[in-house]
């Protein structure tokens, strides 16, 4: 059941090519603007600016892409799922699918940043691990919130307002990890933050799993 739903998400996504290319283009333009701004003064970008720009670009594109997981859906479609699957399965499939989406987005973002701006990361493996964990966290937090926001009138504004306080814990950890990775500090120093991130992910996923049936009911 879970696999079928994930496969369905993929099929739908691939069919709506405009959405995918839209998100890709959104991110590309964000990064390109950063590049244009900083190319005026060569070598003016330091580590702190790099990490701020990187996380801003990732956050905005991730919020926008996950938002459509419920907001874009038509009313009839959700009623159709309701008859087919239990809400737990629906939310799990959405979270897993969105995790993949976020992962792809962050990796592409990293690649684009390395290509256009700079790649100051000294410990690539740990940085990729950070990206993996943050994608999991972002997707579980944002999926549930998009479920809430989809029910309201002005969903897109609401999505941004509601998600910011929730993802900021993840973001804070991620920024701290990025700083360690950029400075090339010993790996044992950032283990604490990685575990913390994992714990936050577990809390958020478990809560999304428990709370989603209540949103679903209407």
């Amino acid at each position: 059941m879970l696999l079928t739903l994930i496969r369905k998400e993929f099929m739908l996504e691939l069919r709506r090519k405009a959405v995918i290319s839209g998100i890709g283009l959104y991110m590309f333009s964000l990064i390109f603007i950063c590049y244009l701004t900083f190319s005026l003064r060569q070598n003016s970008i330091n580590e702190a600016t790099w990490s701020a720009l990187f996380w801003l670009a990732i956050l905005f594109s991730v919020v926008n892409s996950v938002a459509k997981s419920f907001i874009g859906e038509k009313r009839g479609v959700s009623i159709y799922y309701y008859t087919l699957a239990s809400p737990q399965v629906v939310i799990l499939s959405k979270i897993l699918y969105n995790t993949l989406l976020c992962l792809v987005l962050s990796f592409t973002g990293y690649g684009l940043f390395a290509l256009f701006i700079d790649n100051p990361v000294q410990d690539t493996l740990y940085f990729l691990l950070t990206l993996l964990l943050t994608s999991m966290g972002f997707s579980s937090a944002l999926t549930l919130i998009s479920g809430i926001a989809a029910k309201a009138n002005n969903s897109h504004i609401l999505m941004a307002v509601l998600s910011f306080p929730v993802v900021i814990a993840i973001l804070l950890m991620a920024i701290r990890l990025t700083k360690n990775v950029l400075d090339g500090i010993d790996r044992s120093a950032s283990l604490d933050e990685l575990l913390n991130l994992l714990a936050i992910n577990c809390i958020l996923t478990a809560l999304a799993y428990l709370l989603f049936p209540y949103i679903w009911r209407s």
């Binding site: 809430i148 309201a152 509601l162 913390n196 958020l204 209407s218």
Partner: peptide, 28 residues
């Protein structure tokens, strides 16, 4: 969130869900 939902029952339910979720995300 409460302000942008019209249906009273739905408003109560969704805002309760957000309340719990956001509070838990805030604890760390």
């Amino acid at each position: 969130l409460r302000g942008s939902l019209d249906n009273q029952e739905q408003r109560a339910r969704l805002s309760a869900v957000y309340n719990i979720f956001a509070f838990a995300a805030m604890i760390p």
